[in-house]
Design a binder for these strands. Structure first.
Length: 720
DNA sequence: GAGATTGCATTTTTT
DNA sequence: ATGCAATCTC
């Protein structure tokens, strides 16, 4: 291979990173600075120039999509497919290790993966069985508690609950949950990482083996690593391996799910002789867009520091639109898009970004009205659909009937007369006898411990599973799935649904059979000792499949700011730049959260190549009620000379929609948005009101003390 | 066991 | 407003 090919078309900083001598490297890669390119060229450099065997390289990403892309681009660059090269997500790599060393990890060789939905259902049941009142002890909180601790690498015995009653209670749920998972050979997502880490930590031979094997570790999106992922990399690198980590502290937007930006700085301290290389030249956006992004992110504290620049054109100003209300905003955005399309821009090059999914509805309506094709990201994924999970539960039982989560899911789906009461009896029997659910069922049937009616119903289920297991043990995956669906009469469960929904489910199940038919056992899974069945089920859990969306060839992309990370578009609209919406209300109080919102804004701005439009609405119907909005703080952080006001805000504007007018009348002459003064609180803006007559209360946002609810007849407000 | 009704919370998302 | 889940009722 021509070595020059690996360095040509790279800028000096990129070259420095790609061709660095073996050492620990931290690549601070700004948005659009070619970080994926650097990562791929580095891998090729290691193999082709430094003579490192692909066998000794481990490349880790966060999403399956990124992993797939990395593998593909590596193959393209190298001109051949590097076998033995481990590329994967943290979870898939941990999973592979656990399959290869299931005995050492204390797992059954047919352990199954619990996705978050499975996990939630299980925890919810455990919380109930512990006799806790769910309104005080919501299962979601327990799930969060458990995952949060696992992400930080903590088992129950690492947690010191102190005297906090709630902590103790959650800890007890965690203990029960762990015991349950152990018995049923179930592993949740966080457990994959935690257990893989423990596997290496506790087996010195294995650790030595992998430390020796993987001399080069490459990590993408390093700012998104959580504590256990960081520890995993640190452990694996050991004293002889080199870590090449690429990340951008300014794009850390997943703190709320355990990611630690601090890991980026920590890397410099924990790893030996770290060289830091900054990639600051941006190849994506115009000068104006970069200036705006830099200006916004500058307001964050404790950054590692980076300043994006480009030698390209300055480009157009950023358009700022102050809409009267959310309809006006949607109308403006869609009209602008219509114009772009008229000018010959391809719809694929246009994205509308928003903070929360609920915002997509109006935009969609407007796009539909104008007959502009669009695609909404997010929503349910293939393997997360109920019918697919039901069918897979039968398949899981074929692989391992002790899988209690699968039994719980389908023992009465479709209805076969096994009610809650019978189930409670079975669970109790299992707990008393120390048996798995499946074993408990067998024993209860054998000893006639059920009522006659329940007996025959449960027997029917057992016969079904046994039949499936015996008759199709050696069949192809496709036949196994097909027969599971047919013989369980799963579709009966959806009988009473409207035709359209039912047809959808049938199509999905057909698609599942199809997917099973074209599934081939990946060689790395085969090497890890997985059967076709186990491998298929694991893939279903770890890669929940494509996000749906209308599959148009050329359509406008709608998505949240979070899902836009890593993507770029010629023309970008960021909507709803309002205080309380973006930054989101729940993030405003805490400084850490607030700065994460700002990073999200930075991510949003830097998605645009040439055209960026920002919008906000002065009034918006939000969560069922009308409210007056203030522009986002982030808008003020963009230098005015970079902005072109498409329509300036009208301060004190009262929206002409029905609800708003009613409210205006109720305030006895004071309008929403009205500037008022209060004897002790000073000046403020009326945001909302409720009630009428003497009971009228208004919400006023005071400049000095913030928002307050006041009774109008006592408040002594004066209009300004 | 299933359908109807009421109550409650409500960012962001991957694995 | 809206959706999801728990509770009620037959």
């Amino acid at each position: 291979m021509d070595v020059n090919k690996l360095l040509e078309n790279l800028n000096p900083a990129q070259r420095e990173a790609v061709a660095a001598k073996a050492s620990n490297l931290l690549i601070l890669a700004g948005a659009g600075s070619g970080k994926t390119r650097v990562l791929i060229h580095r891998i090729a450099w290691l193999i082709e120039v430094m003579g490192v065997s692909p066998h000794a390289i481990l490349a880790v990403t966060f999403t399956n999509k990124a992993a797939g892309e990395m593998r593909q681009r590596c193959t393209e660059l190298l001109g051949y497919s590097a076998r033995n090269l481990w590329v994967g997500t943290f979870h898939s790599i941990a999973h592979r290790l656990l399959r290869m060393h299931s005995a050492d990890a204390g797992l059954s060789d047919s352990f199954q993966i619990l996705d978050s939905d499975d996990q939630y259902r299980l925890i919810r049941r455990l919380v109930r069985e512990m006799g806790l009142d769910e309104s005080h002890w919501p299962a979601r909180k327990a799930q969060w508690f458990i995952n949060h601790h696992k992400d930080e690498g903590r088992r129950p015995d690492h947690i010191e609950p102190g005297y906090d009653h709630a902590e103790r209670q959650w800890l007890e749920v965690y203990v029960q949950y762990e015991a349950y998972c152990r018995k049923a050979s179930l592993v949740d997502f966080a457990e994959l990482l935690l257990r893989a880490h423990e596997l290496l930590l506790e087996n010195t031979d294995l650790l030595a083996h992998y430390q020796h094997r993987f001399s080069h570790l490459l990590v993408d999106e390093f700012q998104d690593t959580n504590a256990i992922q960081y520890a995993f990399i640190h452990l694996l690198a050991g004293t002889s391996g080199w870590a090449f980590v690429v990340g951008d502290d300014d794009q850390s937007i997943y703190g709320w799910r355990g990611a630690r930006v601090e890991n980026v700085g920590q890397f410099e301290r924990d790893f030996d002789d770290v060289s830091v290389i900054r990639l600051e030249q941006n190849y994506r956006s115009t000068g104006v867009i970069l200036e705006a992004a830099n200006a916004v992110i500058e307001n964050n504290h404790g950054r590692l520091g980076k300043n994006l620049w480009t030698d390209g054109e300055r480009g157009d100003l950023i358009r700022l639109f102050a809409a009267y209300n959310e309809h006006d905003e949607a109308d403006f955005v869609v009209s602008s898009i219509d114009q772009c399309l008229d000018e010959g821009l391809s719809a694929n090059d246009i994205a509308i970004l928003y903070r929360s999914n609920a915002q997509s509805r109006l935009l969609e309506e407007q796009l539909m009205r104008k007959k502009i094709p669009y695609r909404v990201y997010g929503g349910q994924r293939f393997f997360e659909r109920a019918e697919i999970k039901d069918a897979l539960a039968y398949l899981r039982l074929m692989a391992n009937p002790d899988d209690a989560a699968a039994i719980e899911r389908v023992i009465n789906v479709p209805a076969r007369g096994i009610g809650e009461k019978t189930l409670v009896g079975i669970r109790q029997h299992a707990a008393e006898q120390g048996l798995s659910l499946w074993q408990a069922i067998a024993r209860m049937l054998e000893h006639q411990l059920l009522t006659a009616r329940a007996h025959s119903a449960v027997e029917g289920f057992v016969l079904l599973i046994n039949d499936l297991r015996e008759a199709y043990q050696d069949s192809t995956l496709e036949v196994q799935i097909e027969q599971s669906i047919r013989r369980s009469e799963l579709m009966r469960h959806y009988d009473k649904e409207p035709l359209e929904r039912r047809e959808g489910r049938e199509e999905n199940l057909a698609e599942l059979i199809n997917a099973a038919g074209s599934f081939t056992l990946p060689t790395e899974d085969e090497q890890a000792g997985m059967s076709e069945l186990i491998s298929f089920l694991s893939h279903a859990a770890l890669e929940a499949g494509e996000r749906q969306g209308d599959e148009w060839d050329d359509c406008v992309q709608l998505m949240t700011l979070h899902s836009a990370k890593g993507l770029e578009f010629d023309t970008v609209f960021i909507t709803g730049l309002e205080h309380g919406l973006f930054p989101h209300q729940m993030s405003i109080e805490e400084p850490g959260r607030f700065e994460e919102e700002r990073r999200l804004c930075y991510v949003g701005i830097t998605r645009a190549r040439r055209h960026l439009t920002l919008s906000w609405a002065e009034a918006r119907r939000w969560q069922g009620k009308n409210s007056l909005r203030r522009p986002s703080r982030f808008l003020k952080e963009i230098p005015t000379e970079l902005l072109q006001h498409v329509r300036p805000a009208r301060s004190g504007y009262s929206a002409p929609s029905g609800g708003m007018q009613d409210n205006a009348n109720a305030t006895g002459g004071l309008n929403l948005g009205q500037l008022v003064t209060h004897p002790s609180f000073g000046t403020g803006v009326i945001l909302d009101c409720e009630g009428s007559g003497d009971h009228t209360r208004v919400q006023v946002n005071f400049d000095s003390v913030g928002s307050k609810w006041l009774v109008l007849s006592y408040a002594n407000l004066t209009a300004v």
